[in-house]
Computed example of a mutant assay.
Amino acid sequence: MSETIDFSVTSDGWTEVASGSEFVTVATNGRERFAVHVGSAAPALTAPFLEGAPCEPVSLTGLVASDKVYVRAATSPARVVVLRS
């Protein structure tokens, strides 16, 4: 089953937006840039990330049950939309 959820995120820390999903897409309807990280635990602010932007969503496939997806804003605040299944 797929679901779409809105999140408010800041640049001060990572927000977990998905866990146990095989497919995740993160996008914004605004003008904010955002960072996406996949790992088994909350990352440090300096952890490697994928960057998303308006009209440039981040799509992740083949995730395993232990993978968690985290998002933070490039500059605060930002709203992202997450599709997960």
Rank of each mutant, 00 (worst) to 15 (best):
R72N: 07
G30N: 10
G52C: 06
P54C: 06
E32D: 12
S11F: 00
L63E: 01
H37Q: 06
T10I: 15
V64H: 08
A78L: 05
A73Y: 01
G20Y: 02
T25W: 05
A53D: 07
V71N: 07
R72E: 04
K68V: 06
P77E: 02
L45E: 12
R72H: 11
R33H: 09
A74N: 11
A42E: 15
P54M: 06
F34V: 06
T28P: 06
V80H: 00
P43W: 05
K68M: 08
W14K: 05
Y70C: 03
V24T: 01
V17S: 03
A27M: 09
R33D: 09
V69K: 01
T4H: 11
V58E: 05
I5G: 11
V36M: 08
A42C: 15
G20F: 01
T4L: 14
A35D: 05
V64M: 03
V24M: 01
V71S: 11
H37Y: 07
T4P: 11
A42H: 11
V26W: 01
T10D: 12
E32A: 10
T4R: 15
A42V: 15
V81F: 07
T15S: 07
D6I: 12
V24W: 00
P48Q: 13
T46F: 14
E51V: 12
A44T: 13
W14L: 04
F23E: 08
L83K: 07
V36H: 03
D67K: 03
L45S: 12
A47T: 10
R84E: 00
V80N: 00
S19I: 01
A18N: 00
F23P: 00
P48K: 15
P48C: 13
T61E: 10
G52P: 04
G13H: 10
T75D: 00
P48S: 14
G20P: 05
T25Q: 09
P48M: 14
S19L: 02
V38K: 06
A35C: 13
G62N: 07
G39R: 03
T25D: 04
T75V: 07
R79Q: 08
S85E: 10
T28Y: 04
S76T: 09
G52I: 09
G20H: 03
S40F: 06
P48H: 15
A53Q: 04
A73K: 01
A78G: 06
G30F: 05
S40W: 07
T28R: 02
S66C: 11
K68Y: 04
G30D: 04
S76D: 05
P57Y: 13
V26S: 01
F23W: 07
G30H: 05
E22W: 02
R31K: 14
G13A: 15
L60Y: 05
E32I: 09
D6N: 15
S76F: 04
A74H: 11
V36D: 02
F49W: 11
E32S: 14
V64C: 06
S76H: 03
H37D: 00
S11D: 08
